[in-house]
């Protein structure tokens, strides 16, 4: 809802280290508290339970970090971006810290829709054992519902492996319907067949979402960029 009397500030932050373990709602709650601790003149919604006017970018799964995450917060007064950064400095947990900000127009797309392309970096604890083969499909099981996703519908840049075979980058895009392919689920499928003992552990525990036992080979999985098409 565009309100021309409000100032719409887009803020970038990182979600890293231990905070990579947070779920999206936990990130949202923490961001809101950081804004309050920074004493910014945030706007409040009308209605029976007034709440802060804030809008978060696309969600990251539990266990996946990000270095270029963002949210919009609506302010009732202009505060210079430099001043905003100063006020955030002591208000943030280091692993969920604000890195930059700028004002955007009232009719710009919401942060959750503005950047459909996500670039991920996967850092392994050991070099790849074999050549990577990109799976054609990934299977997502949630609440007993199984969905099979075509990887080609989502993957825009195929995995690139570093020379020492411990870092892999790839990009995915959200479909116009908003549907996405979870990067952690894709990584599990991508790495299956690399190390027999990890495959065995994965199968015995039956983890269908998240990195699960695959985490033994994964140091970090991080969204390092979000951009427009």
């Amino acid at each position: 809802m565009a309100d021309p009397s409000l100032f719409r500030l887009r803020v970038w932050f990182k979600k890293q280290g231990r905070c990579a373990m947070l779920a999206h709602l936990e990130v949202a709650r923490t961001i809101e508290r950081e804004i309050r601790r920074a004493h910014l003149p945030f706007a409040i919604s009308n209605g029976f339970s007034p709440h802060m006017r804030i809008s978060l970018g696309s969600a990251l799964p539990v266990g996946v970090g990000g270095t270029k995450e963002c949210f919009d917060v609506f302010l009732t007064q202009y505060v210079s971006p430099q001043r905003v950064m100063e006020q955030f400095a002591s208000a943030c947990a280091p692993d969920l810290a604000v890195t930059s900000c700028k004002y955007v127009g009232p009719h710009d797309p919401a942060p959750s829709a503005a950047y459909p392309i996500s670039k991920y970096e996967l850092v392994l604890t050991r070099p790849l054992a074999h050549e990577l083969s990109v799976p054609e499909t990934v299977t997502v099981v949630r609440k007993k519902k199984t969905r099979i996703l075509q990887v080609s519908d989502f993957l825009v840049d195929p995995p690139q492996v570093s020379a020492d075979k411990t870092t892999i980058t790839f990009s995915t895009k959200a479909q116009s319907t908003g549907a996405t392919m979870r990067p952690d689920v894709f990584v599990c499928a991508l790495l299956s067949g690399q190390w027999p003992e990890i495959d065995a552990a994965c199968q015995s525990e039956g983890h269908t979402l998240g990195l699960g036992h695959m985490a033994a080979a994964v140091d970090t999985l991080t969204r390092i960029d979000q951009r427009m098409i």
């Binding site: 905070c19 947990a93 990195l211 695959m214």
Partner: peptide
């Protein structure tokens, strides 16, 4: 932690 429910319980470093 990747194997447990709600790992946020165990990470400490809260504000």
């Amino acid at each position: 932690l990747p194997l447990v429910e709600h790992p946020v319980r165990y990470i400490d470093h809260e504000f």
